[in-house]
């Protein structure tokens, strides 16, 4: 039997490249401008670099920042994977993948291991990324301090002075109120011991994957017009207290499809009588595991 992902793969392979657009949709000058911002972002890990965000053929909130970053770095030989909350088959992921298949004619994949560029909304793949891969995050709000300090000029000042006590006060208040740090996603991190950074709304469970990741991590916020980056093998620490250390949290269950006890799980409501199940949020990871388990069973029979 074919895995559900494999079906998609064959369907998308049929997408035709459209003519009349520059490679990757954006014009070359815009790409150069964005690449300059990316270079600066890589040079100052975790620092937000402003860029001239363009109108894209999809609304803000659908990943315009990530798409512009991807469009600026993608080449004909790249193979693109797009995930939304870990899944390759949601509308947003499918649309973006098809977009690049049409405007750049690049190959796409759902396999993390096969991709050269992974654009993501709200997750980091379970399969460890390797050198040479690029992870592009779609970011709704790049400023980690924005709920604590409404004045943009003041947040800039706080970054310049590396004064992040406000964020520690917020975590302190969490513990004082609930007994633990109540932030379960978009959990703030310190990059390279200097800049406080929003990891985008990934689950805190994924934060440790950012630390010394072999792949290059790029972050694009289209509406807020900011780009930032974490170069390979950079220190990324989640803020915490000595006596309340950061703990990545996952549901205490095994995936009902592949049995994984390591991956991040989504809770799926199965009926209106309270029935529910836990399955991997990363569909590629789950499918791959199911496939190996299937072949192992077949081999055993």
């Amino acid at each position: 039997m074919m895995a559900p992902g494999a079906e998609n793969r064959s369907r998308e392979a049929a997408v035709e490249t459209v003519t009349g657009y520059n490679f990757g949709y954006l014009d070359e000058n815009t790409k150069r401008m964005i690449r300059r911002a990316l270079l600066k972002a890589v040079a100052i890990p975790g620092h937000q670099v402003p860029f001239g965000s363009r109108e894209m053929p999809l609304p803000y909130g659908w990943g315009t920042g990530g798409i512009q970053v991807t469009a600026s770095i993608i080449g004909p030989g790249d193979r693109l994977k797009v995930i939304d909350q870990g899944a390759d088959d949601t509308t947003n992921a499918v649309s973006i993948r098809r977009f690049f298949a049409r405007v750049a004619g690049v190959g796409t994949t759902e396999r993390t291991a096969d991709a050269t560029i992974v654009q993501t909304r709200h997750r980091i793949p379970e399969t460890p990324l390797r050198e040479g891969q690029v992870l592009v995050y779609q970011v709704p709000m790049p400023e980690p301090l924005f709920r604590l300090e409404p004045r943009v000029a003041e947040t800039k000042r706080l970054h310049a002075l590396a004064d992040y006590s406000l964020m520690h006060v917020k975590l302190y208040e969490d513990i004082a109120r609930t007994g633990h740090i109540a932030t379960s996603y978009n959990y703030p991190v310190m990059v390279n011991g200097r800049y406080l950074m929003s990891p985008s709304p990934i689950p805190a469970f994924d934060n440790p994957k950012m630390h010394r990741m072999a792949a290059l991590q790029l972050f694009g916020a289209g509406r807020e017009k900011r780009i930032y980056a974490v170069p390979p093998y950079t220190e990324v620490r989640s803020l915490d207290f000595e006596d309340h250390p950061f703990v990545p949290i996952r549901a205490d269950a095994a995936c009902e499809l592949c049995g994984s006890r390591e991956s991040y799980l989504d809770e799926v409501v199965t009926d209106d009588r309270g029935g529910r199940m836990f399955v991997c949020s990363d569909t590629d990871y789950c499918t791959t595991r199911q496939g190996t388990q299937g072949s192992a069973r077949e081999a055993a029979e």
């Binding site: 520690h168 207290f241 000595e242 006596d243």
Partner: peptide, 9 residues
């Protein structure tokens, strides 16, 4: 915390 205290207790 601004001067580096990181022990909640």
């Amino acid at each position: 915390m601004a001067t580096g205290a990181r022990h909640y207790g």
